[in-house]
Computed example of a mutant assay.
Amino acid sequence: MTDPKPSRVRGPYAKSAQRASDILDAATTVFATHGYTGGSLRDIARQLDLSLTSIVHHFGTKYELLEAVLERADQTTNGNQEFDFDAACTERGVVAATLERVQSSLERPELLRLFAILAAESSAPTHAAHDWFVTRYRRKIEDLTQAFAFDQQQGRIHEDRDPQMLSRLLIATWDGIQLQWLIDPSHDMNTAMQAFFNWKMPEAVEN
């Protein structure tokens, strides 16, 4: 007796998952264009020719949809393909992992624009995404600090460097260079990030 072939997801469940993905794509476009405040659920529904009820059925509220959009964008390279940045840091070091991530960012300007607009908006404590971005930046700093410390243990970075300060400088530089590229794509993100590493931690580039 042969084992039955694994069944594929079909029917209403597959359709529901696809609909949710379509809504996330449309919401990404709307929020990246108009921000959270300027973009509405009606704008998103209009893009997909759906009813407002259908949007709410999948995500409940505008903020829940925003959070889903941000979480997906933060964990993927182009909205769909996952990129395990932590694993890349462990295997190849922070410098190599960052440059790989920067390269993949060239394929997702809409997601970068989303973060740039919403990060600026959320600097206001009353913004719906304020706490999300506070938590995100704290987590990013903590994760990068651990990754830089691991690089030091592996001999990739000099031991006299402050891992937490390197983390803050990397995030600030990365965000700034991305913003310059979004405003003027003639700026080369790869070259600028490589120059930052050559200046701040040349020994990591050599490794």
Rank of each mutant, 00 (worst) to 15 (best):
P109L: 06
L111T: 09
T77A: 14
D74A: 15
N80P: 00
L48R: 09
T61E: 07
I44G: 03
A97N: 06
Y63H: 10
D22A: 14
G35Y: 05
E67V: 11
Q81V: 14
G39Y: 01
L50H: 02
E82Q: 09
A73W: 08
A120M: 07
A116K: 04
Q103T: 14
T90P: 00
L99T: 14
R46F: 01
T61H: 00
L118G: 04
A119S: 08
E64T: 07
S104A: 15
D25C: 06
H58V: 08
S54T: 15
R42Q: 10
T98R: 00
D25V: 14
S51M: 00
I55P: 03
Q47W: 07
V56N: 11
G60R: 08
E82D: 11
I44V: 15
D86F: 11
T76N: 09
L66I: 00
S51T: 13
E91L: 10
D22K: 13
Q47D: 14
T90M: 10
A120Y: 05
L70M: 07
E107L: 10
L99H: 09
K62Y: 04
V56C: 09
V94K: 05
R101Y: 09
G38K: 01
A73G: 10
A73M: 08
E110I: 13
G93L: 08
S122N: 01
T37S: 11
N80S: 13
E100I: 12
A32I: 05
R113T: 06
E110N: 07
E107G: 07
N80F: 13
D43C: 02
E107D: 14
A45K: 04
A88I: 07
V94G: 03
R92C: 09
R92L: 14
L48E: 04
R113S: 05
A26D: 13
S122M: 01
G60V: 11
A88W: 10
V56I: 12
S104P: 02
S40C: 00
V56A: 14
A73P: 07
